[in-house]
Design a protein around this nucleic acid. Structure first.
Lengths: 259, 259
DNA sequence: CGTTATTGGTTCAATAAATGAACCTCGTTA
DNA sequence: TAACGAGGTTCATTTATTGAACCAATAACG
């Protein structure tokens, strides 16, 4: 049921690591028949969501994506000013930032601003779904997001990404409780080795987190003396962006973050 | 033929003026049966390209648009730096800018940067297709774009938008020839009364324009003393953005724009 | 107030559209 | 040159899409 949806799902196979995909590979990845995949691609191409490289014959996301994003910005403003705030914060902190929003299927990285100040940087994939148990953003979301996320915690099996990934629901809940008090979350290589993350919530009108803002730092620069700077930037972004999205901070939310 | 495409076409009814649409209206606009429209909307919603406002029950473009735009930026970089350049130019010139790219169906406004310096400003709709005969961008595209556009000029009927819209193919061709020499195009209320436009081409690797960059000025500020400033900004954007998009200026392209 | 339109959404038989195995052609590789 | 995998096509079979009528709920109206 849902031909249109099946066609759209092809778009999910494009990612940072694989921005262009050929017909055969895409058919294999999606499990669809080549003919079906091709017909879907043609439909998407006609709309502009897919573009075929005339030389390589490979397919990539098309220009219509940009138009729709602009339209989205009109319907639900916030991203544009978020981008600017993140860019400004990036200049000060000198690290990559990413904004993630809670969507139907999970926590989606929506906006990435990479640092221009270091060649060793954390590079995030905007097509990625963030695991709640293994990332600072995810833990933050568990702590400040809708209750059903915490309920599901006991049901779902938590994936182990690295040695330091938390998978025991009990340990995760302890972390989450701690984050509820401090207001910010951090992760030390629990998703990817060598990547430290610091995240803070962005609240909706109902004082429940609708997304997170996070700073990702490579291990080599994740020294404790940089923490105050990072936390101060994070707190400012958290409060400012909550306001931008028309949300409201809970009364119990700390007025500043402490290490 | 093409269910997926029909579903996607629903997205085309969203615009600056109508960012949220209810089921019945959308069915009427698209000519689809309500049941069909609903099924399509549900499919799009599941993918995240559509989002339903739980209060008003109206539909709007969803968050997946942003994710796809980010993916597009990876596959075909350029927009992000284009945005920054346009923002910088906006600060200097103090007027709204828009980038339009030639897509399958015509010239699409892809990126809009509105001026923050004046309350009277030109506000563009990113979902709009620009008519080639009535806008500075369109004329510019006719002049520097692929040859088939000029061929079609004789076949298609040119729409008259205002009193000063050019509709005679002969007159249009004269204009286009002139633009080919000067390098930039302008329009004086030929699309919308009271809006002056100035546009310059952005070239692809084949030295054929793949898009245009334009500055839109309300009539009240479109005085001749501001022209040098506008043209200088336009020329810089034209050459810089051609480079950003991996393109090449034709050898005959002027090194600066003259009134 | 009762009436009338209009909204979002559902149902189900009729039908039109999607599907997939096999096939074709062409460029690479062994 | 033979084998392979690439992109793409064909067409009988099957499956999902379609749309008129219908329902419940809300808004508009005399």
């Amino acid at each position: 049921m849902g031909t249109a949806l099946n066609a759209l799902k092809l778009l999910d196979y494009f990612s940072n690591a694989r921005p262009e995909i050929g017909l055969s590979l895409l058919a294999r990845l999606s499990g669809l028949n080549k003919a079906t995949a091709l017909r879907h691609l043609r439909a998407l191409e006609e709309f502009g969501l897919i573009e075929q490289n005339p030389m390589t014959k490979s397919y990539a996301i098309g220009p219509a994506a940009l138009r729709l994003a602009a339209l989205r910005e009109i319907a639900r403003p916030g991203i544009e000013s978020a981008r600017q705030k993140m860019q400004a914060a990036m200049q000060i902190v000198g690290e990559s930032l990413h904004l993630s929003l809670l969507e139907k299927n999970g926590l989606q990285t929506t906006l990435v601003v990479e640092t221009t100040q270091h060649s060793v940087r954390v590079s995030l994939d905007p097509s990625e779904m963030l695991p709640l148990n293994a990332t600072a953003s995810g833990l933050c979301m568990l702590s400040f997001g809708p209750a059903h996320l915490r309920v599901q915690l006991d049901q779902d099996v938590q994936v182990q990404f690295t040695e330091s990934t938390l998978t025991d629901p009990k340990l995760i809940k302890e972390q989450v409780a701690q984050i509820g008090i401090s207001g910010w979350a951090n992760s030390s290589g629990s998703y990817e080795d060598g990547v430290f993350g610091y995240a803070a919530p962005i609240f909706g009108i109902d004082q429940i987190a609708l997304g997170t803002i996070a700073i990702a730092v490579p291990e080599s620069r994740a020294t404790s003396d940089r923490l105050p700077e990072i936390l101060s930037a994070l707190h400012a972004l958290s409060t400012d962006m909550t306001a931008d999205f028309g949300g409201q901070l809970p009364d119990t939310f700390p007025t500043e973050f402490h290490p």
